[in-house]
Nucleic acid binder design. Sequence first.
RNA 1: GGGCCAUUAGCUCAAUUGGCAGAGCAGUAGACUCUUAAUCUAUUGGUUCUAGGUUCGAGUCCUAGAUGGCCCA
Length: 508
Amino acid sequence: MSKQDKHDTTADSVAEENRLIAERREKLNGIRAERNAYPNDFRPNSFAADLHERFANDDTETLAQVDEIFAVAGRMMAKRVMGKIAFVKVQDGTGSIQFVVQRDNLSEGLYQQFKQWDIGDIIGGSGVIFRTQKGELSVKPSELRLLSKSLRPLPEKFHGLTDTETRYRQRYVDLIMNEQSRKVFHVRSKMIRYIRDFMEAPGREFLEVETPMMHPIPGGATARPFVTHHNALDLTMYLRVAPELYLKRLIVGGLDRVYEINRNFRNEGVSTRHNPEFTMLEFYWAYANFEDLMDLTEDMLRGLALEVTGGTKVEFEGKEIDFGARFERISVENAVRKYSPELADADLWDAATLRAECKAREVHTEDSWGEGKLLMELFDATVEHLLLNPVFITSYPTEVSPLSRRNDDNPLVTDRFELFVAGREIANGFSELNDPEDQAERFREQVSQKDAGDMEAMHFDADYIRALEYGMPPTAGEGIGIDRLVMLLTDSPSIRDVLLFPYMRPEA
RNA sequence: GGGCCAUUAGCUCAAUUGGCAGAGCAGUAGACUCUUAAUCUAUUGGUUCUAGGUUCGAGUCCUAGAUGGCCCA
């Protein structure tokens, strides 16, 4: 069996082979014949960004005094060979730094090998630090090794990878090529770390918990779940649409302040704002109400904007969003009337009028919907997209808020809000319904809607009612969509830009 | 779910009215000890998304499908 055969891959990947890959595979075979082609004993002692930071202000003479050997490893992104000297751009996880590879600085024959290496190969080199005649900080390797052969050519160096489909499907190539893409995910990580610190800071002291991803009864949000099956137990299970009911069980259990940052799964359409799995911060706070939540949310978002952008004014899709000013708070009813001043107070709770208003705007309605649901449809159609700066919309109809506490003065609405920024729903919070009898009644209403064909309506969760019957302290709870928040603070037009591996249909 | 647009070399893109499928980068061979999208010389590389159809002739026109993007629901 020839060496070629030995390393042949499956028929599927061979079909994808082309001449460029074949050439590199030949090079790899040559390397295999000489030594271990995939060594793992090279240990870098420096990162590119740290070197640039440390030596930013040092000139050639100062650098000559630095008596250290720097070992750097990364991907070869550019290679400019000029006879017996070559300039190589090495990119690691922090940035990139130039290697100046000189034949006379390497062991016999190594430079000849180096000239065979390709852009995209993973290399390691160690040597002194210096500045080139043009002033670029560089490492001059006296040791240079090929650590991983790259078989596939990278996109063109100047335009990079721009095709959106390939960027999402082969995120690894996107990350190699696009600094902006790497930055989004660094920002995302920074935001999540900030949120954890914020929630756990002295005075708040929320406890991070993890609750089930697989639910025997889906609940906590009105959304269609993904269905799966537990073989050993022969049980239908549902990927969670929200952790809400489990987190509130923990409040019953006396964990008075809990939060979870994790994935939810909703079996719905895919769009620039929707991915089947998405990340939520959800938290519950005993002895607090929805107004406390709004205060906390405002503080958190202002802090996040500062942390990420250094200011409270954020540019998004060419518009400026101000997280510095106090967030406006306005009820659903007042918001609808603000943009439709011809409507009278009474119209907002009159089904016939609401239905007519919806119809006039070509908004689809169902006969089974009550005033609350119709009012929200009207809100979605006439108000939502116009809300640029952060605004809390409050007093959601009880009909569409099956887990929220009724308002003491008006049982038709709940002590609930949603936060909108740039026309997008970012957060949803409310004083929790902790009356077990009211909750049981609301579940029954949901079940009858489900029986009437509403695929998103909730199930009756008897254990949750049992938990409430033990007594849940007055509590406020909220969910914040992390992906949408990252979109806002990174000026990303699509949720796919802030998910490392967004949902894609299988390749043809 | 509907409408519009896109899909051409590894990548970024051309291709006139339906008339020989091209460029740059990458690759290959060579030159070059200070490059920065290096430069210079030579050169390889195509299932034009897929399947049908019209035509003397299809990247281009028609039908169906796939994937993606945008807009609407």
